[in-house]
Amino acid sequence: MHIAVCIKQVPDTKNVRIDPDTHTLVRQGVESIINPFDLFAVEGALKIKDESGARVTVMTMGPPQAEEALREVLSRGVDEAVLLSDRAFAGSDTWATSMTLSAAIRKLGDVDLIFCGKQAIDGDTAQVGPELATLLDIPYATFVKKIEKLDDQNLKVTRQTDDGVEVWKLPTPALITVIKEMGEPRLPSLRHKMRAKKAQIPVWGIADLGLDANDVGLCGSFTQVVRVFSPPRRSDQILITGSIEEQVEQLFSYLKEAKVPGV
């Protein structure tokens, strides 16, 4: 079994914000991290490797420094890594990203199962997984928390919905997007760290992937950001003080006034 995991390096959102006074983006201390959902995806793939043996290849499309992210997951036990990097990829929306990733999956050739995170925390779109599956014409399931083998051709996946869980039968090759319950990411091991340090990571650009510059990056994107601004600040903040009894009374009338159902 060959499993591919798609990971993305994202700015750590906790440091990204617009300064309320100057209306400019505060970039102080914005570090890059691996999208947390993608670490759950890596863990899911490694669990299958542990249990029934599998080759796990991780890939990311991003700037040259996204190589760090690949080395980090290599040090957690992933077998191989590929970096998809080209100036022409800049400005990709989810369509252009999926297009690029689909070309890379085809180039790998023999992939049976693809893991993506549920969503990337920079854009929170949750679209790349399903779009990638569509471009590869393989079935997919989103928000998966458990994956089991049903028989030689089929997987049994448990997915979380708004109203409960669903169990689907999914024939391979297939793609799943995963949530936290897939498993806490394991830590890097010393052995794999050594290997990760020395690993040769191939870099594939548009020529390697046989893509046209018009199909990738900003050129290949359909959506365009026309304005970026700070969310309106809440002007309706109050603080309740006094004795416990007074606070209880105040909160109760506050909720009553706001017509909150249930009070």
Binding site: V16, F222, T223, V228
Partner: peptide, 12 residues
């Protein structure tokens, strides 16, 4: 976007 710290207007 960015976990709600920034708003973006997008067109197609």
């Amino acid at each position: 976007a960015f976990g709600g710290n920034v708003m973006a207007t997008i067109v197609c």
